[in-house]
């Protein structure tokens, strides 16, 4: 497989996804994974702890290291040098890079300026494909990716993890249900991609009716700043909060995922149940990102 960059999940084939997940499983089970003399550049123009640390851990476990441009405030991006310049500078210091940026399309553009593998670590309200790989890895472990019924809940408009996951799932035999307030439903371009991928887009404003059908409930955060006023936000956030009472009608096998960080959309009491897989999901980021880095570096060397 010769893959240079990872910008969206739409460009990944089912075979590529399966190869990465299979390799991640081997790594998780203790297989040797080693890239000597490997330096991963981290270029984050938005705050992030998990994605950044997870890539750093992955690089180090592969016997490599990271060069980190440090946290760059989004506001200073506007005044400072162009992204095109930043990536060309960082390219000279590393063998592959991860870019997070507040603007949609940033990673796609960056690939026009560098010759080393580039991973989209999140571009605004666009995509976050490496998160999807660990989401899929976690789902596969507990359920399998075919014959799956999944509910994706929360901010579907701006949620980049949602866009990447939903697009990737079109490559599998998965029934997807999208649950959100009207104002935060899937954007037109993602619905277009899902239709193109052969998926039926089923949208709901409440989860009651479909909850009993679900194998997986993927919860995302609804942010205060998406709403004009506090009251509207509170009423919506309350409506989509997950607790034991809400889950009363769910299948016994339903698992709950969340890309984290969470605020209060999942009751902490759920954490203690077998349904809660979000911390495991987060830990899976390391073997999955090791497998991804290995694949991209194989392609470039």
């Amino acid at each position: 497989m010769d893959r240079r960059h990872l910008i969206t999940t739409g460009e990944l084939s089912r075979a590529e996804i399966e190869a990465i997940l299979a390799r991640a499983t081997e790594i998780d089970e203790g297989a040797d994974a080693d890239i000597s003399d490997f330096l991963l550049g981290l270029l984050f123009f938005e705050p992030s702890t998990r994605t950044r640390l997870s890539f750093e851990a992955a690089a180090k476990r592969l016997g490599g290291d990271v060069v980190d441009l440090g946290a760059v405030e989004a506001s200073s991006v506007e005044k400072g040098e162009t992204l095109a310049d930043s990536v060309r500078v960082l390219e000279g210091y590393c063998d592959a890079m991860v870019l997070r940026h507040p603007r949609e399309g940033a990673a796609r553009m960056a690939t026009e300026f560098v010759n080393i593998p580039l991973i989209n670590g999140g571009d605004g309200a666009g995509h976050h494909p490496s998160q999807t790989l660990l989401d899929l890895y976690t789902i596969q472990k507990h359920h399998g990716l075919d014959g799956l019924t999944i509910g994706i809940l929360g901010d579907l408009k701006y949620g980049r993890t949602v866009h990447s996951l939903a697009t990737a799932l079109t490559k599998f035999d998965a029934d997807q249900h999208f649950i959100s307030p009207e104002s935060l439903r899937l954007p037109r371009d993602i619905r277009f991609d899902l239709h193109e991928g052969g998926a039926t887009v089923r949208e709901h404003t409440s989860m009651e009716a479909i909850l009993p059908l679900l194998d997986v409930l993927y919860v995302t955060r609804i942010q205060r700043e998406r709403f004009p006023d506090e009251n509207e936000y509170r009423s919506v956030a309350g409506q989509y909060r997950i607790d034991e009472a809400v889950l009363a009608d769910a299948s016994d096998d339903l698992i709950i995922l969340h890309p984290l960080p969470r605020v209060d959309e999942i009751d902490p009491a759920i954490d203690e149940t077998d349904r809660a897989k979000y911390f495991e999901q987060s830990h899976n980021g390391v073997p999955v990102r090791m497998a991804l880095l290995e694949l991209l570096m194989e392609g470039s060397r």
Binding site: T82, A84, G105, M109, R188, F192
Partner: peptide
């Protein structure tokens, strides 16, 4: 407005032409 092509980067906006409409080659907006 939050597309990378509207932020002073040295790139020319590019659109893929769909059967109905066009799509930004960078951010995917239709």
């Amino acid at each position: 407005h939050s597309c990378i092509t509207s932020s002073g980067e040295p790139v020319t906006p590019k659109f893929d032409v769909l059967p109905t409409g066009v799509r930004c080659a960078y951010c995917g907006t239709i």
